[in-house]
Computed example of a mutant assay.
Amino acid sequence: MKRFVRPLTQSEFGAFGDVIQHYGGERRHRLSIDFCGEHNPMRQAFWVSKVSTATDLPNSIGQLERHPLSDQAFVPLNAVQFLVVVCPSRPDGMPDMEACEAFVAGPGQGIIYRRNVWHAPLSSLTAPAEFFVTMGVADNATNDEFCDLPSPLHIALEGGHA
């Protein structure tokens, strides 16, 4: 299966989460992020992730992940482009591979993945890259689920080869 990347916009990404960037003329643009859903007790976790090697396109993705208890946010700490691959769930909870979407986030953009949105692991098209990451965690529950794909998802530039 092949997906072509397109620029990340709120209107295209909105079913999966929010694009973190400033909109409009107001001084502040508030973000909606749910760190604990219905699960208590949860605490906010914060860390910085480093990506040492750039991802080239075309690329193949063999695994998706999701976080059933909390949204998860990624904010680049330097001017980078990064790959955003998302997928809704089928009724059985597994990724709906036919509905996967691929985006390129540009400099000045971050993302919030909503709870239960399947997504590819963090990969940057520019390296080195560092990201501020935050999500809810629970001491007595797992907030990370992984799915090995039965066949790789190929991601390419429009008109590119996979």
Rank of each mutant, 00 (worst) to 15 (best):
Ala156Leu: 00
Ala73Val: 08
Ala120Asp: 09
Met135Lys: 14
Val5Leu: 01
Pro121Ser: 08
Asp18Tyr: 15
Val86Arg: 00
Val117Phe: 09
Asp96Ile: 01
Tyr113Val: 03
Asp96Pro: 01
Pro58Leu: 02
Gln63Asn: 12
Ala102Tyr: 00
Asn143Gln: 07
Phe146Thr: 05
Thr9Glu: 11
Ser60Met: 12
Pro7Ser: 04
Ala129Ile: 08
Val19Thr: 08
Gln109Leu: 04
Val137Leu: 13
Ser89Gly: 10
Gly106His: 13
His161Ser: 04
Ala156Asp: 00
Arg90Ala: 03
Gly93Asn: 06
Ile111Tyr: 06
Gln63Pro: 04
Trp118Tyr: 13
Glu65Ile: 11
Pro128Asp: 13
Tyr113His: 08
Asp144Gln: 12
Gln72Thr: 10
Gly37Ile: 05
Gln72Ser: 10
Pro121Gln: 12
Phe16Gly: 02
Leu153Pro: 03
Glu130Leu: 12
Leu57Met: 04
Glu38Asp: 14
Trp47Gln: 15
Asp34Met: 03
Asp148Arg: 03
Asn143Arg: 06
Val133Arg: 13
Cys36Asn: 14
Thr53Gly: 10
Asn59Lys: 00
Phe16Pro: 02
Asn40Gly: 14
Glu158Ile: 02
Asp18Ala: 15
Asp139Pro: 07
Met97Thr: 00
Arg66Phe: 10
Ser32Met: 10
Pro58Glu: 01
Tyr113Pro: 02
Pro58Gln: 03
Trp118Arg: 10
Phe132Trp: 15
Gly14Arg: 15
Asn143His: 07
Ser60Phe: 05
Pro91Asp: 04
Cys147Asn: 04
Ala45Gly: 13
Val104Leu: 02
Ala156Asn: 00
Arg90Asp: 05
Asp56Tyr: 07
Tyr23Gly: 15
Cys100Phe: 04
Pro76Glu: 10
Ala120Arg: 05
Cys100Ile: 02
Pro150Met: 05
Phe103Ala: 00
Pro7Asp: 09
Cys87Gly: 08
Arg30Cys: 08
Ile20Ser: 07
His119Tyr: 06
Gly93Trp: 03
Gly24Arg: 07
Gly159Pro: 01
Phe35Asp: 10
Cys87Asp: 05
Leu122Asp: 10
Arg27Ser: 09
Leu122Thr: 08
Leu83Arg: 04
His67Asp: 05
Arg28Phe: 15
Phe132Arg: 15
Ala127Ile: 07
His119Leu: 09
His161Leu: 03
Asp18Val: 08
Thr9Met: 11
Glu12Gln: 08
Phe146Gln: 04
Arg27Val: 11
Glu65Ser: 13
Val19Glu: 04
Cys87Val: 11
Phe35Lys: 07
Glu26Asp: 15
Val104His: 00
Ala156Ser: 02
Val86Ser: 03
Ala79Leu: 12
Ala15Gly: 05
Ala127Cys: 05
Pro150Tyr: 02
Ala120Ile: 12
Ala141Glu: 05
Lys2Asn: 04
Gly160Glu: 01
Ala162Glu: 03
His161Trp: 01
Ala102Pro: 00
Arg115Glu: 08
Gly108Arg: 09
Asp92Pro: 11
Ile155Trp: 00
Asn140Trp: 07
Thr53Leu: 11
Ile112Phe: 04
Ala138Gln: 08
Gln81Leu: 08
Ala45Cys: 11
His154Glu: 00
Phe46Cys: 10
Phe132Asn: 14
Gly136Arg: 06
Leu64Ser: 09
Ala73Tyr: 06
Leu149Ala: 02
Asn116Arg: 15
